[in-house]
Amino acid sequence: MGVLGEGLTEAIRLLATADPEVLNITLRTLQVSGAATFISVAIGVPTGAFLALARFFGRGAAVSFVNFGMGLPPVVVGLGTWLFLTRYGPLGFLGILYSPAAMIIAQAIIASPIVAGFTVAAVQAVNPKLRLSILALGVTRIQYLWLLLREARLGILAAVIAGFGGVVSEVGASMMVGGNIRGETRVLTTATVLEVSKGNFELATALSAILLLLSFTITATLTYLQQRGAK
């Protein structure tokens, strides 16, 4: 068993005793990645729906650009965000570098194209005949959009799941703009990196197990909602 066994035992112990530090790190992870997902949905779903439905010059290029953004390397986003937020950077006056807000911004930049890209695909996958028949009902533009998004809801929930999964698991950007500050910007991924560099493999394994559990719980909940919506 070795480190792995000890790590899992440690994870159970930390959870069972509700270790305050681990609890804080876990809740911070949820807070940062949850907020980032929320923002990315607010940006990504409308953008995706627009790109799927509108017909304009350069639309193909715009969709390619979104699809390219789905694979944005987190460290690149982290570096970019860091450069903007440093004290003497363009947005330095905000003074939010090394805070959860900075991490939320970076993660939202990572997740927004993912959500938008999935939304484009989901909306375009709605049967065109259905689109026409909705239009034939004589609905307003807003109602049309709403009905269409409802039809595409499975794909859109998949977008949320992918967005959340993308940010909760990344470490590069969080490390760079958050700074891994204890009790403030330390999340499960950055805490794991730190414990590995300290040589505490058991604790690192425990933190990883907790991250997997957390990620699974959220994804399972969203999947449950998605599948119930499928009936």
Partner: peptide
């Protein structure tokens, strides 16, 4: 039902966002 699901998700993320900001 679906509105409820959407609502649950919304509340969930808002709670998360508000959480720990104290």
């Amino acid at each position: 039902m679906r509105a409820l699901s959407a609502y649950i998700i919304l509340v969930f993320f808002i709670t998360l966002t508000a959480f720990g900001c104290g």
